[in-house]
C-alpha cells in the first residue's frame, strides 16, 4: 500500500499573528513554524499503518525552502521519503493541482491530510484533489482502519458521528483522535537526514483567489467584572445591555 501524506508548514498555534508590508504579508519574524496540527494526526496514522501493514509513506508539501525543517520532522516521525513542490501555497486550487499532478504520477492508495490548514482554514484541498482524481473524499475522519482494499472510517458530523466504508483509493481529511501525535526519537532524527527529499517545480501556476490585504480584528473592550455574590446581575446585563438573551 502506498500512502501520500500532504502537510502544511504553519505558524505555531500560540503565535500572535501580525502583518508587514502595508498589511500584505505575514510577519514571519520570531514565528515558530510547525506541521499543521491536523496534518500531524494524518501523518501519525499513516506511520501506524506503515508499522502494521508495511505500507510506504511519502510526505508532500507545497511550500518554499523554509518549510524543509517541517518536512524533515515528518521524515523523522517515520515517513520514508518526501517531495516538496517549490511554491508559495497561496490558493487552495493551486495547491490541489500540485498534489493531484503528483498523485497521478504515483497512484497512491490513500491520500491523507489534515481536515484544514490552520492558516487559511479553507478545508478545501482534499475535496478538490479527490475531484481532480475522480475518487471519493471524506472529512473530517477521526478513525481509520484498512483491511485489504477496504477502508473503515468514522467521520464527525454535527452533533455526532458516522461510520463509513469505502474502497481504496481515497482522499481523507483527518482530525483527532485518528492517532496520537508522534514525537520523533533520536534515531528517527538521525535517519531523516539521509532520507530522500525531492524538490520539484509546480506543474501549473493557475490560481482562482488572491489575498489583497490582511487585517487584525478590533480588540474587545475592557471586561466588566461582576461580583460572584451578585451573579444574577449578569443575566440582567446580557438582556438589557448586551441584548443577547
Amino acid at each position: 500500500m502506498k500512502i501520500l501524506v500532504c502537510v502544511t508548514s504553519v505558524p505555531d498555534t500560540t503565535t500572535k499573528i501580525t502583518f508587514t508590508d502595508n498589511n500584505t504579508k505575514l510577519n514571519k519574524a520570531g514565528v515558530q513554524f510547525i506541521t499543521g496540527p491536523y496534518d500531524d494526526y494524518a501523518l501519525a496514522r499513516a506511520v501506524e499503518l506503515k508499522e502494521q501493514t508495511g505500507a510506504s509513506v511519502t510526505v508532500l508539501n507545497v511550500g518554499e525552502a523554509d518549510a524543509e525543517p517541517v518536512i524533515r520532522k515528518c521524515l523523522a516521525i517515520g515517513a520514508d521519503d518526501a517531495i516538496r513542490v517549490n511554491a508559495d501555497p497561496v490558493d487552495a486550487y493551486f495547491v490541489a493541482e500540485q498534489i493531484a499532478a503528483i498523485a497521478k504520477e504515483n497512484s497512491y492508495d490513500l491520500i491523507l491530510m489534515g481536515r484544514e490548514s490552520i492558516d487559511y482554514n479553507g478545508g478545501q484541498v482534499h475535496g478538490i484533489v479527490a475531484e481532480m482524481l475522480g475518487i471519493p473524499s471524506i472529512s473530517p475522519v477521526m478513525k481509520l482502519d484498512i483491511s485489504g482494499t477496504t477502508a473503515k472510517m468514522t467521520r464527525e458530523i454535527e452533533g455526532g458521528k458516522e461510520d463509513l466504508e469505502a474502497s481504496l483509493p481515497l482522499v481523507l481529511g483527518c482530525q483527532e483522535p485518528i492517532a496520537e501525535w508522534k514525537i520523533p526519537n533520536m534515531r528517527g532524527i538521525m535517519t531523516a537526514r539521509t532520507k530522500p527529499l525531492k524538490v520539484v517545480e509546480p506543474s501549473s501556476r493557475e490560481t482562482l483567489t488572491q489575498v489583497v490585504s490582511y487585517e487584525l480584528p478590533a480588540p474587545r473592550g475592557a471586561v466588566k467584572m461582576i461580583p460572584a455574590d451578585q451573579a444574577e446581575t449578569l443575566i440582567q446585563l446580557l438582556r438589557t445591555e448586551a441584548k443577547v438573551i
Binding site: A92, A96, N121, Q124, G127, I128, M132, E158
Partner: peptide
C-alpha cells in the same frame, strides 16, 4: 457545516470555482 464543506470543496473542483471559506 460539515456537509457543506465537503460539498463545496468538490463543487469548486468540478466548476473550477474560486472558493472563499
Amino acid at each position: 457545516s460539515s456537509l457543506a464543506d465537503a460539498m463545496a470543496a468538490r463543487l469548486a473542483g468540478k466548476l473550477k470555482a474560486g472558493l472563499a471559506a
